[in-house]
Design a binder for these strands. Sequence first.
DNA 1: CATATGTCCTGAGAGC
DNA 2: TGCTCTCAGGACATAT
Length: 277
Amino acid sequence: MPELPEVETMCRGIRQVKGRRISRVSTPKCSLRPIRIAPSVSAIQKCLRDEAILDITRLGKRVLLHTEEYALILQPRMAGLVSLGVAPSSKHIRLQIDFHGEPDCRLLYWDRRGLGSVELIRNDEVQSRIVVGRLGPDALQITSEDFATRLAKTSRAIKVALLDQKLLAGVGNLYASEMLHVAGIHPATPAAQLSKSRIRRLYNAMQDVLLTAIEHEGSTLSDGTYRNALNDPGSYQNQHRVYDRAGAPCPKCSAGIVERIVQAQRSTFFCSRCQKT
DNA sequence: CATATGTCCTGAGAGC
DNA sequence: TGCTCTCAGGACATAT
């Protein structure tokens, strides 16, 4: 579930480890199937031991911890998170990073379903290995012109196009439904068919929804999986207009009922009364 | 090339 | 109550 707002919240929440020197990288013993970690944990430890974390950045839905030479890339996918020593359960802690002189503050990568991954590459490889061919411009960095140009090139339904990380990085299933509702656009509308003014509305809705969600520290759904770096839930779920609200009255027009459809094997929520093709 | 589908994984919740 | 079944969806591999 972590999308741009949740990953951004993770990055902000662990900012205090900036400047600390790594003493140990380890995997707590775990009865679950191991997640994908490359290279091995011992190889990662060899590269990172005694190195300082100089920067923490976000690339789409990934968290990057930078040392002078390396980037440790944490990709939470569906059910992962990065935290400061506390996690929803100890059973699912997949990676632990300890620091010199800070016995009480460690960095954890926690992942309930183990679909996420950890990867160490050199900083100078980030562009070629992670960005090129995988990630489009970040949803909070892209210009409205570039956004319009990219959407004009695909015949796919707008909701499906928004989930394509090569087209635009950071938007996931939850926020795609939310921003389309704010913009009043039916999720099945072919992207290339949208007028310039409606694309502009969608762009503004995207900025607004993502920034507001960051202010609320993301969305913690009913499964409670997502937490911020201190293990507290986000609060944007209380602002959801349509996501996971099928059957409820539309918060915008009150006359419509929120509907659920499936697009590209994923749930989409919308109000057919205020969202038109 | 563009687009569509299958797969990974665990836990929550439904249904009996 | 305890079992089985279905579902959640990000990103990649593979197919069309």
